[in-house]
Amino acid sequence: MSTQSLTTRKPVDWHRIGAWALIVLALVVTIFPFLWMLRTALSSNHSLASNTANLLPADFSLGAFKRVFGLQTTEEAIADGGSGGAIDFWLYLRNSILFATVTTACQVFFSALAAYAFARLRWPGRNKVFAVFLATLMIPGIFTALPNFLMIKNLGLLNTFAGLTLPFLFMSAFAIFFLRQFFMSMSREVEEAAMLDGAKSLRIFFQIVLPNAVAPMTTLALLTFIGQWNEYFWPLLVGNDESIRVLTLGLSIFKSQSPQGAPDWTGLMAATLVAAVPILILFLAFGKKVVNSIGFSGIK
């Protein structure tokens, strides 16, 4: 056998194999909780405790989803292994959508105005004020909860939609920083031409800057919406009335309704999965835009 016929084997790239192994492990760790939630939601409460090691649903049943959507009576829910507790899912879903949408729209708009002022307008103490805004990022939200609660209480806005949304309606430090980075990267030529034609700052902002900032503002709106959708502590403080109760708080109350001694785990997992569907859809639709916009704004 000649030496020319021997094939040269490439050395095993252990670094590449190790990297792929870590990626697969990270995917498993990330996805497994969702699969376990789905498995629990499709199980029967009667069989759940005796089949803890099985990855497939224990005694497959859609009863949990029926309880979430209000398609079961109390007697049917108890017979199916549920707690018998009720959850007004559609009301809580409507409140969550209204709360997240209103606060997101207002916060993004006012933050864009502030970011434009920090990026383009020249006024005394601009950089110092911006540094103060950035410093607020280091203050935990729990520190401002009590002052905000006292303010809402003194205004008589407890258990109202206004009291629920008011602390989130205006600017946030992260949103201002995020948009300011983008505005500073924009070319000034078009704005300077508009100024020569007599356009004022507000007209330039609405007619020139905003149309060119659709991508980062969409990304910021998505991130803000997700944060507001998952908000729990503030609605717990000011929104005890069922008419303005959001979905995160409703799920917690649903878990605590356990007259039979144990929480309705299958119903809770079903409700949690349904509540997560809008966020998953948003991430699937705009996930790439989020990553690209964050990287772009952070580099500039």
Rank of each mutant, 00 (worst) to 15 (best):
N54G: 07
S96W: 01
K300C: 01
T52Y: 14
Y92I: 03
L42E: 01
T165N: 10
N45A: 11
G63E: 10
I294P: 03
F168I: 02
A173D: 08
A285D: 07
A135N: 08
S258M: 09
R120V: 13
L237G: 04
L27H: 11
F130M: 10
F170V: 07
S243I: 10
A19E: 15
W234K: 02
N51R: 10
P147V: 09
T219H: 00
K10C: 11
I279E: 06
P124I: 09
P216H: 11
I299S: 14
V68L: 00
I244D: 03
L91W: 01
I176M: 07
D241Y: 02
I87R: 04
L22Y: 12
F205W: 07
A77G: 01
W14D: 15
L273C: 08
Q4V: 13
L150N: 04
S256I: 05
L247S: 08
S293N: 08
F118A: 04
F60S: 04
S50D: 13
Y232W: 07
V29Q: 05
V238P: 08
S43L: 09
S83F: 02
V214E: 07
G295M: 02
A271N: 07
K66R: 13
S256F: 03
G261C: 05
P33R: 10
T30I: 14
A271P: 07
L222I: 15
I176A: 00
F143L: 12
T219W: 09
F109C: 03
A19R: 15
L55F: 14
L48Q: 06
C106V: 01
G250D: 01
F60P: 12
S297F: 00
V277G: 07
D13A: 05
K128F: 12
V291I: 15
G227K: 01
R16K: 15
A100D: 01
G156P: 08
I226C: 05
A162T: 15
L91V: 04
G18T: 00
A285L: 15
L134R: 00
S50H: 11
I294E: 00
L196M: 15
G81S: 10
V132F: 02
H15V: 14
I78Q: 11
I87Y: 06
P147A: 11
G295H: 05
T8P: 01
T136S: 03
F286V: 07
M195Y: 14
V24Q: 12
L42F: 04
L22E: 12
I23K: 12
K255Y: 11
T74D: 00
L42Q: 11
L202W: 15
T248R: 00
I176V: 11
T7Q: 12
R94C: 10
Y232F: 14
F205H: 09
S43N: 10
I78M: 06
W20S: 14
G156M: 02
F110E: 01
A175E: 07
W14F: 15
L134C: 10
G18R: 11
Y116V: 08
L157R: 06
R203S: 09
Q181N: 12
K255M: 12
G267A: 01
L155G: 07
I299H: 11
N51H: 12
T40N: 05
E75Y: 02
K289G: 03
Q207L: 15
G163N: 01
